[in-house]
Every structure is written in C-alpha cells, then in structure tokens.
Amino acid sequence: MVENRPWLTVVSHLVLIVGIAIVVLPLWVALVASTHTGRDLLSAPIPMWFGSHGVDNYRQMLTSGMEHVSGQPLTLMLFNSLVMALSIAIGKIVISLTAAFAICYFRFPLRMTCFWIIFITLMLPVEVRILPTYEVIANVFTPLTRLLELFGFEGDEIVIAGLSIRLDFSMLDSYTGLTLPLIASATATFLFRQFFLTVPDELTEAARIDGAGPMKFFRDILLPLSRTNIAALFVILFIYGWNQYLWPLLITTDPSYVTVVMGIQRMVNVADTEPQWHLVMTAAVLAMLPPVLVVIGMQRLFVKGLVETEK
C-alpha cells in the first residue's frame, strides 16, 4: 500500500479473519454436527468440536437415507443431481455455441428476430411462468395441439401418411424433463457471441482460403479457440444445474428422481417433530461438496466464468 503503517495491515488481517470466521461458521457447524449422534444434538449448547459418529452418519445417508422421509439413499440423489448438472451444463454450452455461431457468422433473413427470441428468455425465469410451464411438461405437444385447434383441427391426434400419432408426451418424472427445458440460455449465447466477435476476421479469411467450409471452420478453428471460455462457463453452469430447486420441485413426484438439493427440504420439513439434525447436516455437507470442490479446484476458471457471464 501507499504508506507503511503496520497497524493498518494488522487491522486488515483482523477484519479479514473475523469476516472469514463468520462466512465459514455455517460450514463448520454443519461438519461438526454431521459427526455426532442425534442424541448429542438434543440440547443447547451443541458441541462445537467433532464427534465420533461421522463414518456412521455418512454411511447411513449414502446407503439407505432417512427411512421415514422417502427413504432414498443419498447416492441416488447425488447421482440425479450429477445427471442434472452435467446435462444442463453441456446442453446449454452446445446449443449456445451453435446459436452464437449462426448469429455471428451468417447473414440470413430473420437473424435479428432469432436474436431477440433468445434474448427474451433472460426475462422469463421459471418463477414467472410456473403453472403454464408445468402444463407443457405434462404434455410437450400442448402448444402444437392448441395451435392446431386454432386452425380448426380437433383432438390430440394427427395422421401423417396413414400413421396416426398421438400428440401426448409427458416429461414429468424424467431426466429429460429435469434438464431439457433449462438448457435454453441467453447468457451463454451472449457470452459466446461476445467472444466470437473478438476472433480476428483474418482467421476466418485464412481458413476460407485454406478451403474450410463453415462447419469445418467451426470445428477446427472456433471450438479450439473457445476452449477456456467453454471451461469457464462449464464451471458456472455446473453449479447452476446442481443448485436447481424450484424446477425439480415442480416436475418430480417420483422419489427416484429427487435431487439432493430439494431432497434436503423433505428432511427438514418433517411434521410435528424436530428434524434429525445430525443426518440433515450430513446430507447438507454431501450436497455442498461437489459444487464447492469445483469452485475451489477451478478457482481461476470460476472467476473468469463469473466475470464474463456478466458482461
């Protein structure tokens, strides 16, 4: 710093340490609680140092879960969360890359219309369209049949070349339903668009002279150049997917599709009794672990992703 005042530096360190203590306290409490028995946590003050039942708690939660609430082992919930997080992250990246490529590298009729349609998704989070979206998930063909009705066709069947197709397909309680509707992404499309605009035009020209068509250019030049951006975005989107809450709450009723983040809610909200806190905290630690490890392990990519998606 500008002047050398040791006491200022000491104060800075002190403030940081106290701040970090406040920030870390919930994690500490959860970790400690997850190593005790339910009996240890019955009366205040609860212990602030580790107990000896950690292994038992984690084993129980991972293998059989909490019997009286749905009774799903956490392994299954963690697996569901992983599927959801990975599908959302990869799906968003793939369709945003191609969309951004089309918008940046081609001139075609309705280009700006497509851009604005994608832009609008920014303003329509799940929270503002809960019921109608549920309706669509319950039958994905709802928009189509309603439109057909408008044009005088009745019913939910169409006949094409003698084949009758029932327009009824539900995505409730499925991985498709958990992920597909969430992979549209204006943010990711904008991020890639922003990045593509910084790629020198001469590279495209050189590739054209070298005989590369659009898809070859996309695969050989643009994708490899986007590598760090893709990785950074992946970190952010993985966390986003893992932490989804309202969406799985809406479209899953079958316990075998419960994700870990929403599963904890059922363990906490037990009727007329105190939750089994030692097991709840075990579950909470397990639910936090994957995304927290991703953030800490890929700190540089994470920071990059965070900053870039906000541009």
Partner: peptide, 18 residues
Amino acid sequence: ALLAPQLLITLVFFIWPA
C-alpha cells in the same frame, strides 16, 4: 439448423408458457 435447438426450446418452454 444451428439455431433450431435453442429456438425450439425457447418457444416451447419459455415463450408459449409466458
């Protein structure tokens, strides 16, 4: 074709419900 997946999902799960 490149835009289709994004647009389809947007239309079915965002624009229509909204």
